[in-house]
Structures are given as structure tokens and as C-alpha cells.
Design a protein around this nucleic acid. Structure first.
Length: 490
DNA sequence: TACGGAAAAC
DNA sequence: GTTTTCCGTA
């Protein structure tokens, strides 16, 4: 078992808790103009990495209104501009306990995404990049039956994506990807099953769920989260009386040196999966071969860490939108007014101008790993075997089966998590062999009569109500108990 | 400002 | 495997 706390190099605890400890609190992101399934915000959903990846982090920033002065969507779908590179770098550094992070380094990391086709640079626009969401989808929905998505295959694996930047999925492709998702107008929840008999129309995915994937949709010129009437305060509380989007949820008890919000060590709040599970029907299960549903297929070996975390019982899923605007702490508050003026760090411990008081205290004496010591000169460094920059097979097509929630070295991790975190275990056991989670599709679809239900998350039972009053939650609870019993018996 | 090689760190 | 760090180059 990995240490609960990740320590920054130098040994000083910087309060960055291991991403393994808890899953992030961010349910799916979904705004009227743009939506992200929750895997996009899950560190664990990154194949090959158990820490949050930069592009996840970028998505998180992009999703939060309070950071729109720092980074925001702009231009075409998936395109974003880093308005304040230093700030973004600082935030990233905070997130990763790298106080010497700067835009130069961050951008290097971003550039590594070019080859992986997760990102590409928007030429001629400063600090402007563009997500290749089709890649992201492929990475994070590996269980989708590609055979049933000829359009996708054609466009992205069969030479169809002639464009070097791998143009986004088209509506047709999405339709092919998510045929079971209900079509809905503005008044229909993405997650609502179509009441009418299933048909070509009723079975269609609501494409504006992934507007950034649509090549046919018009561009937006302002941050997607500002599009449309979007409630800036959650119309609900989380069942556990905890709302990760409220600053109070981030009392920083565990992380006093870090700003609140999911951008930061995301281990201080309950798992939203319970909420997600309790509310969401699984729109994709019908896409999966029978054996793949309900944990019938064991998730594979190490490396493909996260996909399962973005899935339930081995299934991909869409989850709830967050309410970034609910964060009462603005960025100014969070960041203590600091700003990074430097581009190149001075390697002076404890003097990071932009890290804020907290982190500065926490990292003040730390000796950063690497540093100048032991570095080779460029000439010395060069001459080695060139690394294959295209070694991104997992990101290209992604093995559709070898996705495990953890690696073999930590077989009990999910169970441990379950033990540790009561009430959020139902998915975490998915990596366990023989896990027999029922398909989420077996859960009753949520019911929402909210006129804006397509714009708001499905309402979980209010905190005052016992979970058992929610049919979905009751199922989840029942399932969790079942799983617990299974674990005990095994 | 952006790119990418290289190696180390994680 | 991903990111960090450093740096040469355009």
C-alpha cells in the first residue's frame, strides 16, 4: 500500500495527499454548452498514471468559473487559451507539489500531449491549445464497442482522420458511440431514459453533451460554463450533506496549505461515485457485450489505471455536472493574491512568490528533487537512445480490456479504500476479481421533472432524507452491502 | 513564444 | 508512463 501522503521531494510533507487515497470529488462536468464526463477529472482515469494528469487538471481549471480569468475556453470547440500562464503553472505546481513549476515546464508537459494527440497547439495564438476530445473519449471509453461505431473507426483509426490534429468526433460519430443515450431537447435530462418507445430518435445521444466533439456545431466564443442559463448554485446538496463545490467542503483541515477545490489534492471529500451511481442509469451498458456488463469481464493488468474509475463495473458512464460557481471562494481568495512574476524559478526554497502563504510555509525548506545537482550538460545528455515519442499506444486506441483500477502491486487497494471510506465502496471493488457489480443499467433511471433538468444534475435525495428513500441509492447501498459480504466471504 | 531532445524524477 | 527539469534551437 502506498503511503497515504505523497511527500514532496526533500521529504517535507507538502500536504499533497496521494491521489490513490481517495477519488476526486468531481462528478461529471456538464454545463449547458459543454460537458465532461467525470472521468475527465479523475486522476485514476489516466491510463498509466495514478496521479492526476495535466490535461485533467486543465479540464478542471477550464470548468471552474473562478479560473476563467486564468484559463478559459475560447475559439473552436476544445480550444482554450491560457490567459495567465504563470498562474496556471502555479496552480499546477500547487497541485503537484512542485513549487518551482512554471509555464515553461508546464508547456513542455503540454507539448508531450501533441504526440499523444490529446492536445495540439493552435498556431498563431498565444498560449492557445486545443483538446482533441475524440482522443480523450477513446481513452476513457475504451469499452465502447468500436465495432458498433464504424464511423468512429473510420474517422479515427482508418485513415479518416487525415488531419494531423485528429479532428473532433462528429455528431455522427458520437451518435455511433452513444446510441443508447437519449436524445433530448433542452427539457430532457441527458440521463433520462426516453419515455417513448426506443427508436432511432429516442435512442440518440444528445449531442450537445459533447459539443466539443461536434464538428458541425458552431463555435462558442465564451467559456462554455457561461453558456445558457446555468445555475450557479447547486440545487441540491450531496446526500452526505457535503458539497464538494462549496468552499465549506474544503475546510482544508487536511490541507491547510492548499486552496480549496478539486484542483487540489482531491482526497478530502467523499466520493461522488455514490451519488453518480445512485442517480445515473447506465447509458452504455447496452453497448457492451453481455460479458462485459456487470463486471463479467475482469479488468486487466496494471497500467490502465483509471478507466475503470471512470466506469462503473467496467462500464463507462456519464455523471453529474458540477457547480463550479458554487465555490464561494474566488480565485483571489484562494490564491492569496499571489502571482508569479517569474518565468524561470530561482530555485530559492521558500521564496516562491506565487505559491501563497500556505504552500510557502509547507514547502519553505524543502529541497526540490532534481535541481541543478547531478544534471548533465546537454551535450552529455544527448546521444542516448531516443525515446519513442509515439509510445502512446494506450492513448491511441487503448486496449479495450486491460483496464484495471489499480496495478497488481496493490491488489487490495480498492478494498482498503472501501474499508476506509464507508459509503463509497460500491465501485471501488470493481477491480477485484470476479466482482459482480450489476450493470448500472439495472438501476432505475433517475426521474427529474425539473424544467431545466437537462441543465442541472439529477437531484439526489436531500441530506435530511435517508439514503434508502432514494431507490437508486438504496440499490447502491444494497449492492455495497452485497459486495461487502462477498469480500468477507472471500 | 514555441518546440522538442534528453535525462531524471516520480 | 507521465511529468519535471534543463536547455538548444527556431
Amino acid at each position: 500500500m502506498r503511503a497515504h501522503r505523497r511527500r514532496c521531494s526533500g521529504g517535507m510533507d507538502c500536504n499533497c495527499v496521494s491521489d490513490l487515497l481517495l477519488t476526486p470529488p468531481v462528478p461529471a462536468l456538464w454545463t449547458p454548452g459543454i460537458a465532461f464526463p467525470d472521468w475527465a477529472y479523475k486522476p485514476e482515469s489516466s491510463p498509466g498514471s495514478r496521479q492526476i494528469q495535466l490535461w485533467h487538471f486543465i479540464l478542471e481549471l477550464l470548468q471552474k468559473e473562478e479560473y476563467q480569468s486564468v484559463i478559459s475556453w475560447q475559439g473552436e470547440y476544445g480550444e482554450f487559451v491560457i490567459k495567465d500562464p504563470d498562474e496556471v503553472a502555479k496552480l499546477w505546481g500547487l497541485r503537484k507539489c512542485k513549487p518551482h513549476m512554471n509555464y515553461d515546464k508546464l508547456s513542455r508537459a503540454l507539448r508531450y500531449y501533441y504526440n499523444k494527440r490529446i492536445l495540439h497547439k493552435t498556431k498563431g495564438k498565444r498560449f492557445t491549445y486545443k483538446f482533441n476530445f475524440s482522443k480523450v473519449v477513446l481513452v476513457n471509453y475504451p469499452l465502447l464497442d468500436m465495432a458498433s461505431s464504424p464511423f468512429l473507426l473510420q474517422n479515427h483509426f482508418n485513415g479518416g482522420s487525415a488531419a494531423p490534429d485528429c479532428s473532433p468526433l462528429t455528431p455522427e460519430a458520437l451518435q455511433s458511440l452513444f446510441p443508447r443515450l437519449p436524445e433530448s431537447g433542452r427539457g430532457t435530462s441527458l440521463f433520462d431514459r426516453v419515455a417513448t418507445a426506443p427508436g432511432p430518435e429516442g435512442d440518440k445521444l444528445r449531442l450537445d453533451t459533447f459539443p466539443f466533439l461536434s464538428s458541425a456545431a458552431p463555435c462558442y466564443s465564451k467559456p462554455p460554463s457561461l453558456l445558457g442559463p446555468y445555475p450557479r448554485n447547486p440545487p441540491f446538496d450531496y446526500p452526505w450533506g457535503f458539497n464538494p463545490y462549496l468552499s465549506g467542503a474544503f475546510s482544508l483541515n487536511n490541507c491547510p496549505k492548499l486552496p480549496p477545490g478539486s484542483l487540489y489534492p482531491s482526497h478530502f471529500y467523499p466520493n461522488p461515485l455514490q451519488t453518480s451511481l445512485g442517480q445515473l442509469p447506465h447509458p452504455f451498458s447496452s453497448l457492451l457485450p453481455p460479458g462485459e456488463v456487470a463486471g463479467g469481464r475482469e479488468r486487466g493488468a496494471a497500467g490502465q489505471t483509471g478507466v475503470t474509475n471512470g466506469t462503473a463495473g467496467g462500464q463507462p458512464r456519464l455523471c453529474l455536472p458540477p457547480y463550479p460557481g458554487a465555490l464561494s471562494l474566488g480565485r483571489t481568495d484562494i490564491l492569496n493574491g499571489g502571482s508569479v512574476g517569474e518565468r524561470r524559478e530561482t530555485n530559492t526554497p521558500g521564496t516562491e512568490p506565487g505559491l501563497g502563504l500556505g504552500l510557502g510555509l509547507g514547502l519553505g525548506g524543502m529541497v526540490l528533487g532534481g535541481g541543478a545537482g547531478g544534471r548533465q550538460s546537454p551535450s552529455e545528455r544527448r546521444g542516448g537512445v531516443k525515446q519513442d515519442p509515439e509510445s502512446d499506444s494506450d492513448l491511441e486506441i487503448t486496449d479495450l480490456s486491460d483496464c484495471s483500477s489499480d496495478n497488481d502491486n496493490e491488489p487490495d487497494f480498492s478494498i482498503t479504500k472501501e474499508t476506509r471510506l464507508s459509503g463509497r465502496s460500491q465501485i471501488l471493488v470493481e477491480g477485484k476479481k470476479g466482482g459482480a457489480l450489476p450493470p448500472l443499467s439495472s438501476l432505475p433511471p433517475p426521474v427529474s421533472s425539473h424544467p431545466l433538468k437537462s441543465l442541472v444534475p439529477l437531484t439526489p435525495p436531500p441530506p435530511s432524507l435517508p439514503l434508502t428513500l432514494s431507490p437508486s441509492m438504496a440499490l447502491v447501498e444494497r449492492h455495497r452491502e452485497t459486495e461487502t459480504l462477498k469480500l468477507i466471504h472471500s
